[in-house]
Structures are given as structure tokens and as C-alpha cells.
Design a binder for these strands. Structure first.
Lengths: 136, 136
DNA sequence: GTCGTTCTGCGAATGATTATCACTAGGCGT
DNA sequence: ACGCCTAGTGATAATCATTCGCAGAACGAC
């Protein structure tokens, strides 16, 4: 089996990840270095990728094409499909729930004969704090 | 003012674009070459970018990070914000309308105090034809 | 046809991500 | 505690989509 070892780097990543908010892979890398950990960029990418596959981090892709990562449910919610409302400025995000959306999507899909539907909802805006800050 | 000239390349792009379906920039480029036009890749990128800004093409970003382009409303529907159900296999897409979604989003946003909300909905699946073809 | 601008094409540059590969270090068995 | 085996690490090279820079070509108004 594929044993996953808990290394110093991985622990550091998980730890940093814990303070919520979306950050790019390189962003998390910087943060780790800032915290004193000597972690390679490649390792951060690998770690984030692994975590995203195991469902421990969510990922979103920005307009500019970079992938943002964020710590999410510990793992026990395999069903836990939810969405985010992310702040364009600071990356802070709140989990949201769009009632009935999944159902509507399923109906639309079958209506058109499409199968194996997957959906992505990306909501972004400016959070109260950043809006206030921007107002100067 | 910024006069937009109708060049051979741009015409060819618009023409190719007309047969619907999402394709990557490089995909459209290939198609143009296949049709006999000698167009540079950079030109295709520039053209698609311009068209997307003027609202004549829709863009979506795939998981792998490439941007797909597709001809859309001639331009008169500035309000025409709609979504797509795209086939993962052939790129064919149908326009869909998620009733009430915009409203729900607006409510959620204001509930959390977020402003200037923008949203993206990405629906993809396998269309009937491709599903049948895949079934062999 | 002439001219000023915009557009095109090419290749080089960028930026994010992934692969490579020799080396380090978890961690299980003893 | 000791060693071994393998997964993990890190620096760098490679990849891939996209953008830039610039010399020359092509629009289209006069």
C-alpha cells in the first residue's frame, strides 16, 4: 500500500494550512519559509496536491490561472461538497450552501441527456473588512 | 480611438469560431491552419482575447489550466449572462439557465456582507453522442 | 497611390507547475 | 537501539500555455 509518511515538511504544511484562507502554492511556500521551515517549493506542490486528492484541501483556480489552496474539512466528510465565497483581496472565504443547486443541476443535465455531470461554482467578492479598507 | 481593423486573420478566426463548441486557443489555431489560413499562434491568442473582452466569446478554464473559447452572442446581449453545460469529450455545449441562481447568490453575498460579487458556474458532463460512442 | 497606425509573425521570455534524480530520513522488523 | 527499504525531499531542468518585443506587412482614410 501507499504509506504516507509524516515528515517535518508535511507537518509544517498542515500546520500553516490551518490558519484558513486561500493561498497559492507559492504563497504557502513563502509562508513556510517565513515561519522558519526550510521547505522546497516542489515539496509544497506535492503536499498540496496530495492533500487535495485526499480531500483535505479545496482548490480554486483564479482568472490568471494560478491554483489556490485552502484547508478544509478534516476528511470525514467525503460527501461534504460545498462552495465558497472568497474575498478577492485577502483570500478569506466563507463556506456557503446553495440550497437545491445540486438537484437543479441534475435535472438540467438529464434534461439534455448529459451524464457524469460535475460542477464548479466560484463565487468571489470583497469582504466587509477589505471593502472598508479600500474605502480608505 | 482604437480602431479595430478587419484583417484576413481576424476574419478567419471569426469564421472558424462560428461552428460553435469550446476549443483552446491552440485548438482554434490548429483549426485555422487546417483550413488553410496561415495564422500565427500569438495572433489567435490576441484575437480571442480581444473578442472575449468585447463579449463575443465566452471563456472557461479547464482543470488543467488551459482556457477554452467559444463564440457566443454577437454582442448585443451585454446582460446575457448565462452558463454552459459542456461535454468533456467533444466540447459541444448547450446554454443553460439556472433559475433563480443570481438572486440566491446576491442574497448569500449580502448576508455575509460581501460586495462586488462575481460568480462562475462550470458544468461539464458527457453528451449523449459521446456517451453512446464511449459505450462502443 | 501614399501614409500613419494597427496588426501580424516569429521567436524569445514569462510564470506556474511538473519531472528528474541523487540524497535524506521515516518507520517497521529485529 | 540498528539497519534497511522505500517514500519523501530539494535544487534544478523541463514543460506547457500564454504573453512580449519588434521588424515588417497590411488596413483604410486621404
Amino acid at each position: 500500500m501507499t504509506a504516507t509518511r509524516m515528515t517535518r515538511q508535511r507537518a509544517a504544511l498542515l500546520d500553516a494550512l490551518r490558519d484558513g484562507g486561500f493561498r497559492s502554492a507559492q504563497g504557502w511556500h513563502e509562508r513556510l519559509r517565513a515561519d522558519g521551515s526550510t521547505v522546497g517549493l516542489a515539496t509544497v506542490y506535492r503536499g498540496l496536491q496530495a492533500l487535495s486528492e485526499s480531500g483535505e484541501v479545496d482548490t480554486v483556480v483564479t482568472d490568471s490561472g494560478e491554483t489556490l489552496y485552502r484547508h478544509c474539512g478534516p476528511g470525514e466528510d467525503e460527501h461534504g461538497h460545498h462552495h465558497h465565497l472568497r474575498c478577492r483581496e485577502c483570500g478569506r472565504a466563507v463556506d456557503i450552501d446553495v440550497p437545491g443547486f445540486e438537484t437543479i443541476v441534475a435535472e438540467l443535465a438529464s434534461h439534455h441527456g448529459y451524464r457524469d455531470i460535475s460542477h464548479t461554482i466560484e463565487l468571489s467578492g470583497v469582504c466587509p473588512e477589505c471593502a472598508a479598507a479600500a474605502r480608505d
